[in-house]
Design a protein around this nucleic acid. Structure first.
Lengths: 227, 227, 227, 227
DNA sequence: TATGAATGAGGCTTCATTCAT
DNA sequence: AATGAATGAAGCCTCATTCAT
């Protein structure tokens, strides 16, 4: 009896694992397709087919197609959150740059994924199903803002960063990262051959931008570029 | 007869004018709709109706829906091109900053339009009709690159800008502008209240970034932020 | 010019007529199918196909499938309303029975249609689209009630009908008509051969039922059948 | 061995009991759901879940979903049959009204159930599986007809009921009961507040209708209501 | 020439039924 | 023996495009 129970609960656990594995398979299939071709051309049918399962099976795991897409968004944003929270600990033990480094690393590690998430966000922003998931998504995003914000406030206090509202620094970083990501995939540029070096250049701008002394310079020492 | 010909060619000219005016009306209607609501919800029907004409008439002007969209993209990019070429003349008469200023001005003047063009580009990138138009679009983009490139090369020569390949500077600018635009409309941030100030801050970064002395600083004076 | 305008507005009127004719064609096709086979088996495809048009065309006339169905319901109920209102005029000029006669006539004229409407009502009762139409449907039904009610009140006043709340009489009539209709098509009875005579018998019951003296009889003269 | 057999057959009997109990549970679960919400929304999944068992298990008891539904129909009709046969015995010992009373009582006891069975009949009438069960259903219905018929024939013989074919009386009763049931649940009437009194009124009509002297009255004493 | 009704491919979703564990 | 994940047929609906008037 005892053994029977054990083996039975084992079997149940086993099944759950398989079930979750398949869920992951669906998400992964969707991801590959979404990255590989135009988003509009990714259908539930194709996802199922790429995952090696029937179309109906997809709906055992996700209530709607949008739920698959928002799941990808959440997975991504949560991964960044995890990294940031680890970096926050490091930052407490002395390295104030760990947080922003973690942020940039997370986003630029797989730029194509970052870009996909932006595109998905754009398309799902007014989807009626998945309202709660989108709220969660925004919540996580704002928690990133908090994490970086606290670090930046500290650097401003230490006189390293220009004394503007902390979120200016954060959002500028975000904007540059965002633009850099876009840059990587924008086909209008043709295929940039020295992308890594370019990214390095941009990153170096990212980590120094907003440093004290540069902001006011804008209107002073380089009048010719003033906009 | 002569008079008849004259009046007939007048009539023809008149007709052409009306025809072109209507074409413009269609594009403008499409634009308003595309900016006002989710792109996927903009149908040819709605465009025609907003333009005050029949759906069939739209197809007298554009062979496919995509042609309307790509037309918006081209109009936009051409407008930038015109401005850049004017600025280039000014630059020759002494103001090297005129070009980059014109570029930023053009793109940030109507950020919602800039963003729309990005989104359209993303969706149309592998459309089978409109291949030639997309090629033209890329061509114009690259001409911007050239315009800015030549100016940047000059500034590098004068020792003002860091001596990296010229397109690094240009693309960094592009990336920051791109990100800034995205920032304005990303609903995850809630509604930023001090957007103008923030944009000012970002612009100030844009015009100074890459200035000599900052690039190497990255690895030297702020080691803690190094990525 | 004048002639041109006339012929043009003629053409428009012509087109509208054709359009409405097609709408009627759709409704008729749907009706035939719904009466001819199990309701669940009637698909939009079949309706279109029977109407000799494409599937998409159906949606030029009706926003959803349910709108076709509710249209049938409304058409039916409105026809009854028209008849009742005519009968009401007759009733004023002396014939108090005209109203109830019109009601029975309307419903029993095409019992299969009456029954269909009941079934549709049952299925659509909680459909989220067509809420307004269903409200209208109920409104019309209640107007029938009013029409018959006023007549019945009069008969009660004249001592012809039993003095119970007027709607008792009306609803009893309704129930009997309803049951009679159901009877015609209930396959459990096999095919009744003498349906007309049976219906006549039931109708005769309908027009006399509730006559003074019968209600109290129930408890008095036929105690053995008392329920 | 003998003991083994006994205990084994006991176990088998036990199992059968459990099995049958579960079958009943399924039917009851289905019934509750069917009465509680729109029929189309009742799925096998929901039934299983309400019965507290797995979906697959349902199919150990019923070959198809339709078999569950037709089972409900049969259960209902058989219950009426049982009551009628009991009443028939009473009738032989002197009470001719016992049969029709039993019939009305059976149907009006749970009008919502009666109505459900009508709706199921309508939907299943041309189902390809369950043909035999539907035949059985009709057979039972006709046996009711016989039961009432014999009683009515007697009453006609005694001069109490109008001398028309016996099934006229029976079917009229059926129709009135049918309509009354429908009346209870038809949402178009709003929620009738005095339903019990109304049903009483209708029942009183039911038991007297067709009594001698009323039929011909229709054409004689109430000419104004003649249809 | 302008129109808009007609079209149908193709997308999403549901659910009765099967079957491996 | 019980389970529930997997399946896929079938239904509804959208919208770019065509074409007769």
């Amino acid at each position: 009896m005892t053994q029977g129970n054990i083996s039975s609960s084992n079997r149940i656990r086993e099944k759950k694992k398989v079930f979750l594995a398949r869920e992951e398979k669906i998400v992964r299939a969707a991801l590959e397709l979404l990255i590989g071709e135009n988003i509009d051309r990714v259908t539930v049918s194709k996802i199922a087919s790429k995952a090696g399962i029937g179309k109906g099976t997809v709906y055992k795991h996700f209530l709607t197609k949008n739920e698959i897409l928002v799941r990808i968004m959440l997975d991504y944003e949560r991964r960044i959150a995890r990294r940031l929270s680890e970096a926050l600990k490091e930052a407490e033990s002395g390295d104030p740059g760990a947080v922003s480094k973690a942020y940039f690393d997370s986003r630029l590690e797989r730029p194509e994924l970052d870009r996909l998430v932006q595109k998905l966000e754009d398309r799902l922003v007014d989807a009626d199903d998945i309202k709660p998931q989108l709220a969660e998504f925004s919540r996580i995003r704002r928690s990133h803002e908090d994490a970086l914000g606290s670090m930046i406030t500290k650097l401003i206090g230490e006189g390293i960063l220009e004394d503007v509202p902390p979120h200016y620094h954060y959002l500028s970083c975000w904007a540059l990262a965002q633009g850099a990501v876009e840059l990587c995939f924008n086909k209008s540029w043709g295929d940039l051959e020295d992308t890594p070096e370019l990214m390095g250049f941009i990153s170096s701008i990212g980590v120094t931008m907003g440093n004290r002394g540069q902001y006011h310079q804008a209107g002073d020492s380089t009048p010719k570029l003033t906009k």
